[in-house]
Each structure stands twice: as C-alpha cells, then as structure tokens.
Amino acid sequence: MPDVLRIADIDHSAIKSLLAHYGLSMVQVADGETIPGSYWGEEEAGIIGNTVYARSDTPVHSLLHEAGHLIVLPPERRAETHTDATDSIAEEDAVCYLQIMLGGTLPGVGRERVMTDMDAWGYTFRLGSARAWFEQDAENAKHWLIEHGLLTSSGEPV
C-alpha cells in the first residue's frame, strides 16, 4: 500500500466544505466496511448520486478524483450516477486536472502532494508523471474545465 495522504490525516470539515460548495456530501464509512460505489474497491472512494463515500484510510487523491467525476457532471446526471461516471477520455483528463486543483484548496494537502500521491498510486501519464502532465500536457483538460464553467479563465476552481 503506497504511502499517500489519507482522509484521517486531514481536516474533515475542509473536505465537507469543499464538497458542499459543489452540491456534494461526504459519508464516512466505518473502518473495515466496504465503501459503497467504489470502482476500485479496497480503500478507494466511492460515488453514488451526490455523495462521495470514504473511510479514514481512503487516499485524499482518490476522494478528490471521485468527487471530480461528480463535479464535472451536469446536476441532472449526478442523481443517476453509481460507481462509474466517465463518459470520455476528455472528461477523465478534466477530472485528473480538477483533482489536482482541488487539492490546492485544502489545508495540509496542496497540488504537489496530490500529484506525488497520484504517481505513487500508479496513475500513468505520457510524460511519466502527474506533474509533467499537469505542467506540460494538460491544456486540453484545463480548457475543458474552463468551457464547462468549473475553472476561471485564469485556471482557478470556481
């Protein structure tokens, strides 16, 4: 199990506030229990409707990624979402970009930590790392998010 930042390591009120900003909620599942709506199983976050499910051992990057899937969906599609939310490669790229940006808004997390944890967990990018992708190859993802009203024109989360 990679050494990544986990939900237990950060302020839950900051996570809940971030999710609430996008009309989402978080349900913390008891340790050892199965996480509802988890695509990857184990300690990975899950999504059902407007809710992100996580345990104390859930990686922060996983919670941000799954929340990102719900954030990029129109509200009417969120209600029918269960476990898998991706429509396209462009949307998946946008979610990866958004999770990095959202990490930068959380105290004690930051963009760098999210990218480091994405690499440790095994995300794969053409340029070899999340940081290289984010800095050199993610313009399409950034523009997708701007076009969908999820980033400002300067690239900050809305």
Rank of each mutant, 00 (worst) to 15 (best):
L145D: 03
T116V: 13
H69Q: 10
A120C: 02
I7D: 01
S154D: 15
S17W: 01
L18Y: 05
L5T: 11
A141K: 11
W144N: 06
L106N: 06
A54M: 10
A14N: 11
G122T: 02
D11H: 09
L5N: 01
K142C: 12
A138W: 09
G104R: 08
M101K: 15
I47W: 03
V95C: 00
G128R: 07
P75E: 05
S25D: 13
E44V: 08
A90M: 13
L106V: 11
A132Y: 07
L145G: 00
E112N: 12
E33H: 12
T58E: 04
E66K: 04
E112K: 15
R77Q: 12
A79E: 12
S17Y: 02
G23C: 09
E91H: 02
L18Q: 06
A120P: 01
M115A: 02
E135A: 10
D11W: 01
G68F: 00
Q136E: 15
V27H: 14
R55L: 07
E156Y: 13
P107H: 11
G155L: 06
D93V: 03
A120F: 05
D9S: 09
R55P: 05
E92N: 08
D9T: 05
E76I: 08
S153H: 15
Y123A: 00
G32A: 10
A94K: 04
V72Y: 00
R131F: 11
L64Y: 02
A79Q: 12
R131N: 04
H69T: 03
L151A: 03
Y97C: 01
T152L: 03
S56P: 02
G49R: 07
G103R: 04
G108Q: 08
S88C: 02
L24Q: 04
V72G: 03
A94R: 05
V109T: 08
Y53H: 14
A45R: 05
L98R: 00
V29W: 11
A67D: 00
L150V: 04
F125K: 12
T83M: 12
L145K: 06
P36R: 10
I146T: 14
E147S: 14
I100H: 01
R131K: 15
E139H: 09
D31A: 15
G37D: 09
N50M: 08
M26C: 15
L64P: 01
L63V: 14
I89Y: 11
L19C: 04
L98E: 02
G32T: 13
A130M: 03
D87C: 03
G46N: 10
W144C: 07
D9P: 03
P59E: 04
T116I: 14
G110Y: 07
V4S: 05
F125T: 10
I15V: 15
N50A: 14
G108C: 07
E139F: 09
M1C: 10
R55Y: 07
G68S: 04
H143Y: 11
I47M: 13
I10G: 03
V95D: 02
I7A: 12
G122K: 01
I35M: 10
E112Q: 15
I48P: 01
L63Y: 01
P59W: 05
A141I: 08
E66V: 00
S129L: 03
P2V: 07
D11G: 07
A67S: 13
